[in-house]
Design a protein around this nucleic acid. Structure first.
Lengths: 137, 137
DNA sequence: ATGAGTGCAAAGACTTTGCACTATA
DNA sequence: TATAGTGCAAAGTCTTTGCACTCAT
């Protein structure tokens, strides 16, 4: 549960409207990557187009980031202020668990450096079966 | 440039038709993740639906795998026979370079293990600017 | 020959856009 | 109040499906 920097909207000259606040509140309640579909379901009073537009805006402001998961559906997630984290995605129950690991980040930076690649960001997704699903066959 | 195991199609009871062969040949010529769009452009004589159907089939047979890149467009890539590899994606020129690193895989496996997660696969994508683009500002 | 596979076009799903209306700054 | 933002519905994209025809086996 992270707080969303609503101030950043106003700072950049955008208006903090009721629909935008509603979207942001919904984001604050979610701690895993979501699809527009899922988000929109939680906001029945807000037009779908507005949800799309708001997420697009928040993405441009780096308040949310795109998370490319294996199923090909576009997902977003609130940015955790530069803190990289990765995902364990269960193919059985669909749960998405975050984790972060300095060793993993280190390995990634090492590879970028070796390739003379200037790293802006990275993503790592692990697919498989979560602990819970493995216990319930 | 990898050879595509066309035999796997026949072994599984699927027919090796001219369109499928054409798709497979096109894949063999590509060594980076591609969209259906890109693939279809190279195969003007083959119906778009067939390209979709063929890629879907090849995906099911694990001959191609889905590569989730940051722009949200679905991409595929020929599977390199279980060999995990990752991508350096240049946001400037769009180039996608593969690399593999046992240390990175090791770190990933370690995390899965810690979480009692049964790992089926993983992906790691690095975004930034490639060496070439950095030299040409 | 015979049923899997194909192409086309129509249908679906998902996302963006146009426009008149509303409400923030 | 002046203009960014909204909702709705229409228009785009991208992908899948239905169906009659074709072609590997």
């Amino acid at each position: 549960m992270s707080s969303i920097p609503t101030g950043r909207l106003e700072d950049t000259g955008y208006r903090l409207t009721a629909p935008r606040r509603a979207v942001i509140d919904a984001l604050a309640r979610t701690d895993r990557p979501f699809t527009i579909e899922e988000l929109s379901e939680q906001l029945p009073n807000i037009g779908r187009a507005t949800v799309f537009r708001t997420i697009k805006l928040l993405h441009e402001l780096d308040i949310v980031c795109r998370v490319p998961l294996e199923d090909g559906r576009i997902r977003y997630e609130t940015s955790h202020s530069g803190r990289h984290h990765h995902h364990l995605i269960c193919g059985e129950c669909g749960s998405v668990t975050e984790f972060s690991d300095p060793a993993l980040d280190e390995a990634i930076e090492q590879n970028a450096s070796t390739a003379s690649f200037e790293l802006d960001g990275h993503s790592a997704e692990l697919y498989g079966r979560c602990a819970t699903c493995r216990r319930l066959p």
